[in-house]
């Protein structure tokens, strides 16, 4: 179906979480967005609202964003009760306003988790994810002195599966969607990538132990297998990663000496 070439502006009501900084209380504040084109991305809509706010002498709404093509993992809005909004398999920056209707009320909140404290408005501190990676999200090889790349044949199936896990962008939508604010999909994606590949085997079991221990210390909740993380993950990372992590963790802690 061809769309009309000239699109009507949409009028929207936004309820946006505003919070000056980590130490103050926040609240939802209502704004009118009267000139929204369906071709805008969600973040471009916020840009326009912000330009208006600045012109009025108000403080613009702060939100994390960078690449605006769905790969950097910076954008992180909870839109009408869902991380990255109503569509599946995309980030907020890939969401376009044509997914909404004229007159809609849109509630925009930051990721909510004890481990992701709000810095300002919709910006949260997701450094907990980095610290989990510091604990063991790597294969310990120094630069240089590695074998020729083709010395390690890897079945295409395994390589593809590892890549599926490795596509995680670290946005935190899994934590945001989970009713328990659990980070297990994120952690298990990295654990899985390394556990699947032959290069990851030497540290396979220490890695899962170290990463899970750090995850627990960060104050994330526990997985109750609701599957919300998988459903909301912009990269559609599978729950089977969590199963793999569990398996490796139990193997490491209960059976390995």
């Amino acid at each position: 179906m061809m769309r009309l070439s000239i699109l009507e502006d949409m009028k929207l009501t936004l309820k946006v979480w505003r919070q000056k900084n980590a130490n103050t209380k926040g609240q939802l504040v209502t704004y009118k967005a009267d000139h929204v084109s369906p071709d805008m991305s969600f973040l471009e809509m916020l840009d326009v609202v912000n330009e208006d706010l600045i012109h009025k002498g108000d403080e613009p709404i702060h939100f994390d964003h960078d690449c605006r093509e769905g790969i950097c993992g910076a954008c992180s809005l909870h839109i009408n009760g869902r991380p990255h909004g109503p569509k599946q398999g995309i980030t907020t920056c890939q969401l376009h306003m044509r997914s909404f209707n004229d007159g809609d009320v849109i509630v925009i909140e930051p990721w909510r988790a004890a481990a992701f404290p709000v810095i300002r408005d919709l910006v949260t501190d997701r450094s907990a994810f980095d610290r989990i990676q510091h604990a063991g999200g790597y294969i310990s090889v120094n630069t240089g002195g590695v074998p020729d790349a083709n010395c390690i044949p890897i079945s295409k199936v395994v390589a593809d599966e590892a890549l599926n896990s490795a596509t995680c962008i670290g946005c935190g939508a899994c934590v945001a969607a989970c009713k328990n604010a659990s980070a297990m999909l994120f952690v298990s994606a990295k654990v899985s990538q390394m556990a699947l590949l032959p290069q990851g085997q030497p540290e396979r079991y220490q890695r899962v132990q170290a990463m899970v221990t750090q995850m627990d210390q960060e104050g994330f909740g526990n997985c109750t297998n609701t599957g919300a993380c998988e459903a909301e993950c912009p990269k559609e990372i599978s729950l089977s990663n969590i199963a793999r992590m569990n398996r490796d963790y139990f193997a490491a802690n209960i059976f390995k000496e």
């Binding site: 090889v141 590695v146 390589a159």
Partner: peptide, 20 residues
């Protein structure tokens, strides 16, 4: 570079025989 990245666990595309 390719050697280094593969050793780090970068999942490059592979052929059915397992090579890059």
């Amino acid at each position: 570079i390719i050697d280094q990245c593969v050793a780090q666990g970068v999942p490059f595309a592979r052929e059915y025989g397992g090579l890059l």
